[in-house]
Design a protein around this nucleic acid. Structure first.
Lengths: 215, 215
DNA sequence: AACCCCATGATCAAGATCCTCATGATCGAA
DNA sequence: TTCGATCATGAGGATCTTGATCATGGGGTT
């Protein structure tokens, strides 16, 4: 669940976005009053969506304060598309600027992009218990270290990180620094070797026409 | 000095941006051909500006590969303002999307915003662009001088100068004044020695059938 | 449903490439 | 000359690539 702090004085527009984003497991809390918004515990939110045209306080001041005190990612959502507003916003710490009107889909995409960039490598997203563990250069399976070649390590790493979902052959090979990009055949062999070392061939499943999946 | 890798097939537009950004201490290197751009050592750049309408290759593919393999911040700069292009770009790893035409000032502001965000929240310890430095006859690695033999120096020099790009065994040997042109075998040993002195064998990667690459 | 056919995946073996150690050859300096 | 540093060469082992061969799964036809 991603928690979003929105400061937007148009209730209808706020409601529209709230409902749209809700379907992506994003919970939006809107404040029409910027003062209330800033005193609502910014720490508790993952991201801020900020309108610039606000009653009582300039949105840019809100932006500056939120950026400085809380270092929260900020997306400006404004009817003003003037270049100076944009420049000032970025100057004061905004991460993105979306001139109204815009497609909610684009807002969603930009939110994901921003959070992805920010949380790269953050505490591992709640991994349900796995019998795989990666520590530095070695992978442990059921508590025992596996003796893997470089190529095997790179492939299995990716599978472990995306456990349960299929990864394309292309991606598996491209992300490898050891294997040559051209040969699709080698991957079959590497997979075969890993399966043998795991002792349980069924843990790595082929997904026909796509790639492989670790279960 | 911020180094920017640009892939843009309109030379005039590229030139315009290059000159504009130069005044902010940003050095832009443009490639009209996406293949050349991707093989030009993406490691060496801080950020990528990518046009979507390219000859020979879809810009989205470039985006995907660059994001996945190099994790470099990417700003899409495209004449296409279709929402689907935007969504696909963000999906594939882009960090921002700027529809042409736009004010270079806005591009500059967005670049700063992106780099600022990346240099803080991103867990990736902001790695200096290169931890190698060549001064006269000695090479420094992570600030410390390496004690290299003449042959080792010549080989490592070439690799440092083309960091991120593979260099053929042939070229490595031919450019050496110390090693005899006949023996391909010595190179293996020299490389082995350098790796040992670096302390991190993975910095010099063998590119099968080609040569070696420093990362 | 039963059947065939073809694309895809699995496995094996051979060849090529690469890594490292050990040893011999070469060159310059003390 | 003698010694030390460096480069060359070879061997052995590990790893990646490739082709051959067999197994599997899905689609289309009857």
């Amino acid at each position: 669940m991603i928690k979003i702090l929105m400061i937007e004085d148009d209730p209808e527009f706020a409601e529209l976005l709230t409902e749209y984003l809700a379907q992506f497991d994003m919970q939006v809390t809107n404040f029409e009053d910027p003062f209330l918004g800033l005193s609502a515990g910014v720490y508790n939110y993952d991201l801020m969506i900020l309108d610039l045209t606000l009653p009582g306080m300039d949105g840019l001041e809100v932006c500056e304060e939120a950026a400085r005190k809380y270092d929260i990612p900020i997306i400006i959502s404004s009817a003003r598309s003037d270049i100076n507003d944009k420049l000032a916003s970025f100057e004061l710490g905004a991460d993105d600027y979306l001139p109204k009107p815009y497609d909610p889909k684009e807002l969603h995409a930009r939110i994901l992009s921003l959070l992805r960039r920010r949380s790269r490598g953050d505490s591992a997203p709640q991994t349900p218990r796995s019998d795989f563990e990666i520590q530095g250069e070695t992978i442990y399976f059921k508590g025992e270290a596996l003796h893997l070649t470089p190529a095997e390590f790179e492939i299995l790493s990716q599978l472990v990180h995306s456990q349960g979902i299929a990864i394309s052959r292309e991606q598996l090979i491209n992300a490898s620094t050891v294997m040559s990009d051209s040969s699709q055949k080698s991957l079959d062999v590497i997979i075969s070797k890993i399966r043998a070392k795991l002792g349980d061939p069924k843990r790595i499943q082929a997904v026909r026409g796509i790639g492989y999946k670790l279960v």
